[in-house]
Design a protein around this nucleic acid. Structure first.
Length: 287
DNA sequence: GCGACAG
DNA sequence: ATCTTGTCGC
């Protein structure tokens, strides 16, 4: 894709502002949101892929402390990939191995269970209102938040010039913009997560978290543009691939999938997190 | 009709 | 997601 003159100008302007020190690290107490006083562990997941390899990937699950954002747990391993990537069907490609990772954590270090999970991709901001963050949330019964770095075109939302202009209007970190589809529903929020990057994040409800809480929590986890849990998971999986590109796929120990795991609503929401999302399809599942 | 469209 | 070089700045 050829860089448009306009985009290049914006980039140069951003660089210039960086050089002159107009954009500085956030100094605001982004981790001190009183709403999250009961929050101690935030999880993040990510998969890294190898260029010409459609059958393997490196999956990682990390758990960070809050508000210190230090890595308490990490699980990084080669996993088999069965489905291709198709926009709108990401969950079918990544969720299976992520569920197994969460189950391993629950088995081996239950005390490190995250109170909320940040997922690469969308939740409600999805053609069928059920993106990977919803999918993973329901299967693990963990509160999940969808964090995408690009806009998925859905319900009339497109990354056209108008959208780019709206994104440009987000000047300071923490500023948001609702993503309202043609249907009139607010499907997510555009979030400028840090002052150093003009590229936003697309936050949406995954499971058992309200949109407002999701946005504040994501921002509370941002040292850089990508929230630390996802960033740490990303760093670990690509570093693993860099060092051991030929690592064999691990034989996955079949954790018995007891139906109880799929029955949600037995635990409350994470301490300090409001859990009302009022969204059909991602609420509690009662068999 | 064709193409855009999370990772 | 991945492929890539240098460049600028703290």
């Amino acid at each position: 894709m050829a860089a448009s003159p306009a985009r290049r100008r914006r980039w140069e302007r951003e660089q210039a502002r960086l050089r002159t020190g107009l954009l500085e690290e956030d100094t605001e107490p982004w981790q001190k949101d009183p709403q999250f006083s009961g929050l101690h562990r935030v999880g993040g997941v990510d998969l890294s892929y190898i260029k010409g390899d459609e059958s393997r990937a490196c999956a990682s699950l990390v758990v960070l402390s809050y508000p210190a954002l230090e890595v308490l747990y990490q699980d990084c391993r080669m996993v088999p990939v069965t489905a291709p990537y198709v926009a709108g069907f990401l969950a079918f490609r990544e969720v299976p191995v992520l569920v197994e990772a969460v189950q391993r954590l629950q088995q081996e270090e239950p005390q490190l269970q995250p109170q909320v999970l940040l997922v690469d991709g969308n939740g409600l901001l999805h053609p069928r209102g059920f993106g990977i963050a919803c999918h993973l949330g329901v299967l693990t019964d963990l509160p999940c938040i969808g964090v995408a770095k690009n806009l998925l075109h859905v319900d009339g939302l497109v990354r056209d010039e108008l959208h780019r202009e709206q994104v440009r209007s987000l000047q300071r970190s923490g500023e948001t913009l609702p993503l309202t589809g043609t249907s009139g529903k607010v499907l997510g929020m555009v979030l400028r997560s840090c002052s150093n990057s003009s590229r936003p994040l697309y936050v949406s409800v995954g499971h058992r978290v309200s949109l407002g809480t999701a946005v504040r929590l994501v921002r509370a986890c941002c040292r850089f543009r990508v929230p630390e849990p996802i960033r740490q998971a990303d760093i670990r999986s690509r570093e693993y691939l860099r060092k051991q590109p030929c690592a064999p796929v691990e034989v996955l120990e079949a954790v018995p999938a007891s139906p109880e795991r799929w029955v949600c609503g037995q635990g409350g929401s994470a301490p300090g997190l409001s859990c009302s999302n009022g969204i059909k399809g991602t609420g509690r599942v009662t068999r």
